[in-house]
Design a protein around this nucleic acid. Structure first.
Lengths: 210, 210
DNA sequence: GAAGGAATCGGACCGCCGGTCCGTTTGGTC
DNA sequence: GACCAAACGGACCGGCGGTCCGATTCCTTC
């Protein structure tokens, strides 16, 4: 991302070649038995180049994840409601969960590979941190107890293997509905500072994909 | 488990030796960089013996998990309330979540190793299936929508890495409270067939560990 | 446009791991 | 005590993530 200065032309070319090759292998071979040898071969570069660019397996998938989640993260922070600032906590959380389910369903393989490569350090990746901060903040606004832990629990539903189970055909609906239901139950239970957080008043901002 | 018949004495001795060795390595080296070579060496047996007994890495950890979860699974099915049959859905679910959090916090390393070894097939392990059936059934009794998916979402909070994060000192309280809170919110929201499922009426059956 | 040097490349190489194989040993039985 | 099925164990295999360093390529400078 933040290169020191002036990336050499061949380096840039190879970087995108590796990323594209990784994507291709991810969608073709569904799972995460993707060796970096294969990636390098598919990209038409040497193995050393892959490691020079991305450090290690984790870094490679992290870069791809960041690329895929960039627009969502921007929309969350500075986009228009209900995803961005301005909407009430519950609709905003629901919109986020919809968007996240959609993203997760569309890129299961990538997310699976990323999780597997990260291991326990998954929770310290910038992307996860941003999502957790967002959810946690929204929950805290409605005074949900231990918002941080609750946010983790909600986000745990987006475990890649679970996504595969609940969205076998790529449709995020089932996962989205389930998690939104959880969030709504949680928030409805806690009398909010904002008055009109009632269940009936929820604007359902499903990103209609189907 | 169900050996064909009459396990030879040395085989039995080696089996427990391997299991104990695995436990020891799990608690000593916190994570899952436990090679089966090491396990064999620690147990004082050959590598081939480990594979002969347990088939593969997954089988080894699965055997250990089954050993650890046996009593809980019995208690759920035939034990006394509130864990066993006889209690109302919500208290029973809360009791189960308490017990599961306790178990998870005490055996994080094992569960982490098991998850990692199982991969996506984690959801088809007998233990997970039993737990999911249980939670799913309880949710359905209170007419929670899509009980199956919701049960998966609740159980996802027991992801080993998340347990490590929320129970750094082995105390299950924070995890338990969070998930029980989720379950309670869910069930309270749905008007049950049983009348007295209210929040105040919940008997808190925390397995006081602290 | 040629030269120089730094950044990049690439694939041979390393140690390790999960899993297999088969000659050897052991335990139960008659 | 002898026999044989069962179990043992460690050498062996293919493949992986990651490293290293001589060869190559790009960019700058004159």
């Amino acid at each position: 991302m933040t290169e020191s200065r002036t990336e050499r032309s061949d380096a840039a070319r190879n970087r995108v070649a590796v990323l594209r090759a990784t994507e291709k292998l991810l969608v073709e071979h569904g799972a995460e038995h993707i060796s970096l040898d294969r990636v390098a071969a598919q990209a038409g570069v040497g193995k050393g180049t892959v490691f020079r660019r991305f450090g290690n397996r984790t870094g490679l998938f992290a870069a791809l994840v960041e690329e895929r989640t960039e627009t969502l993260n921007q929309d969350i922070e500075t986009g228009p409601p209900p995803l961005g600032p301005g909407a009430a906590p519950l609709p905003r959380l629901r919109a986020f969960l919809d968007a996240l389910a959609d993203l997760a369903a569309r890129h299961v393989s990538l997310f699976a590979a990323h999780e597997q490569a990260c291991g326990p350090g998954r929770f310290t990746s910038p992307t996860y941190l941003a999502w957790h901060r967002h959810v946690s903040g929204l929950l805290a606004m409605v005074r949900v107890g231990d918002a941080e832990a609750t946010a983790h629990a909600l986000l745990a539903a987006f475990d890649a293997d679970l996504v595969r189970l609940l969205c076998p055909d790529g449709r995020p609906d089932r996962l989205a509905e389930t998690v939104k239901n959880l969030a709504t139950a949680l928030m409805s239970e806690h009398p909010s500072t904002v008055e009109q957080v009632t269940r009936s008043g929820v604007a359902d901002s499903s990103s209609g994909r189907a």
